[in-house]
Structures are given as structure tokens and as C-alpha cells.
């Protein structure tokens, strides 16, 4: 199956692991990810105000590219996913906003038709966790993993509609599918500190520490995330626990990680 793929800025740079393992694993799971041509940045953050138009155009272009190819769109970075999905929702529900956007789109009118999958949703809804279980060759047996959702994957839940925003299970189900044991902890959907780390690293550190201390207290040995900024903040927090991208563990379980090291 072919799907359009939008990596976003950070995956081509500081978060290449997130990208490389995502592509490798998708291929092994019979999904062809076709990277959108000439893509631009998603915008980084979705501005919730409805009179903000220009900053959302790049996301609309991404959505429109997938639409023109007749494909569903896959994103893997939590931030990109949040921005693109919220932008698409605005195109569907706010006709004033949509008509302003389309003034910039020339002949390429777009009305929110594209279906967007986060890579995790693709694993759950397109591939199926059962199939992943079958394809796993290196089950991560006995590994106690804490899923870290952060805020962008789940909220606002009315738009993201991925999972129960207060008690999500998609990452836990993923962890089970690769043979490991999920650790449930309450802080897994609290904020890591986000972009505030730029201006006030200590405040971000405080947030991230609270998350990781809670994960550790509940027995986690390893944390997985889908967001480069979360990964950065969690790693900088100084808490003594490894944090990796979930795609890396997927590749490892599917026996693909060694390949890349060759």
C-alpha cells in the first residue's frame, strides 16, 4: 500500500533516527511511504486563532499534495502531526478560514479531503498490531517501557481523535506488539516543557523531571516518544533513564536495526 509521507524539518536533521527507522519499518510492513515533493515546514505550532492564515499555508500545501495523489497522509513527528491535523480540521469546519486560504492556493483549491494518519495510527489502523506481532523477530521481552505521549499527540482530543486523551493506550498496545511490557504512569500525557526550553531551560527541566520521576517510580526502564522536542527535553532533564524514538524500537523488534548499522 502506498501512502504520502511528510517528514518535517527536524526529521531531516536532528531527528534522523525517527525518520530512518520509520521508513525502514514501514517497508517491512508492506507500506510504501512516498515523500511529498518540495515540502515545506509544517509551521511548528498550530496557532489556534482563526484569523491567522499565512502561517498555516504550508500545512495546507502538504495536505493538498497528498490529496492530488489520491493518497492518505502519514506523519510521524508529533508536532507536525498536530499542526497538519488541526489545519485540516480548520479547513473542514471554518469556511471563512478555508476561503481565505484558497485565495492563496491559485488553481489548487483544497477543502480538507485528505485523511491524516500519525505513524502510530497507521500501525494500529492500517497495518494492525496483530500483524506487527507476527512480523516481530526480536521481541523485546521483559523490557519495561514507559510510553510518553506528551501533549501534541492527544490534544485537543476533539480534533486529534486518536485515543482517550486522559488514558491513552495506542503506545502501550504498540509496546505489547513488539513483545515488551508497558508501564502505565499518570504523567505520560503531561507537557515536557516544549519550546519554552529555548528561553527558560530550567522550567522545561522541571516539567520533564516530573514526568520521568513518575515513570521511574512506576518501574519504567526506558521511555519512548514520537516527538523530537519531547526527546530533547526529557534527555536534558538529567533524570537517569534512556529515552528513544518508538520507531527505533520497532525497527529493532522487526530485525531491521542491524541493517542500518552495517
Amino acid at each position: 500500500m502506498k501512502m504520502s509521507y511528510f517528514p518535517g524539518c527536524t526529521l531531516k536533521n536532528k531527528a534522523t533516527d525517527l525518520d530512518v527507522y520509520a521508513r525502514l519499518s514501514a517497508e517491512a510492513l508492506d507500506i510504501m511511504l512516498e515523500e511529498i515533493e518540495n515540502w515545506q515546514c509544517c509551521g511548528g505550532m498550530f496557532t489556534s486563532s482563526n484569523d491567522e492564515v499565512a502561517t498555516k499555508l504550508s500545512s495546507v500545501r502538504v495536505l493538498n499534495s497528498a490529496f492530488k495523489k489520491g493518497q492518505d497522509l502519514v506523519t510521524v513527528c508529533s508536532a507536525c502531526h498536530n499542526v497538519v491535523k488541526q489545519t485540516n480540521n480548520a479547513m473542514q469546519t471554518d469556511s471563512e478560514f478555508a476561503s481565505k486560504v484558497n485565495n492563496y492556493m491559485g488553481e489548487d483549491k483544497y477543502e480538507g479531503q485528505t485523511k491524516i494518519y500519525h505513524y502510530l495510527e497507521m500501525l494500529r489502523d492500517v497495518v494492525g498490531f496483530e500483524k506487527i506481532k507476527e512480523k516481530v523477530v526480536n521481541p523485546l521481552k521483559g523490557k519495561k517501557i514507559g510510553a510518553y505521549y506528551g501533549c501534541l499527540l492527544l490534544r485537543p482530543s476533539k480534533v486529534m481523535a486518536m485515543d482517550n486523551p486522559e488514558n491513552p493506550t495506542i503506545l502501550e498496545d504498540f509496546i505489547r506488539a513488539i513483545g515488551a511490557e508497558p508501564v502505565i504512569y499518570a504523567q505520560r500525557n503531561e507537557c515536557c516543557g516544549g519550546y519554552v526550553t529555548l528561553e527558560s531551560p530550567n522550567s522545561a527541566k522541571k516539567q520533564s523531571n516530573r514526568v520521568l520521576e513518575n515513570a521511574k517510580a512506576n518501574g519504567a526502564e526506558l521511555i519512548i516518544t514520537a516527538c523530537p522536542l519531547c526527546l530533547y527535553n526529557l534527555k536534558k532533564s538529567g533524570a537517569n533513564i534512556p529515552v528513544v524514538y518508538f520507531t527505533e524500537l520497532l525497527a529493532e523488534a522487526l530485525g531491521l536495526k542491524e541493517q542500518t548499522n552495517d
Binding site: T10, N13, K14, A15, T47, G194, L229, Y232
Partner: peptide, 11 residues
């Protein structure tokens, strides 16, 4: 520092 942090902060 991921690019994402700078882009988001500017936004």
C-alpha cells in the same frame, strides 16, 4: 536542540 524548538518558539 531540534529545529522544531526554534520554529515553534518563533511561531
Amino acid at each position: 536542540l531540534p529545529q522544531q524548538a526554534i520554529v515553534s518558539a518563533f511561531r
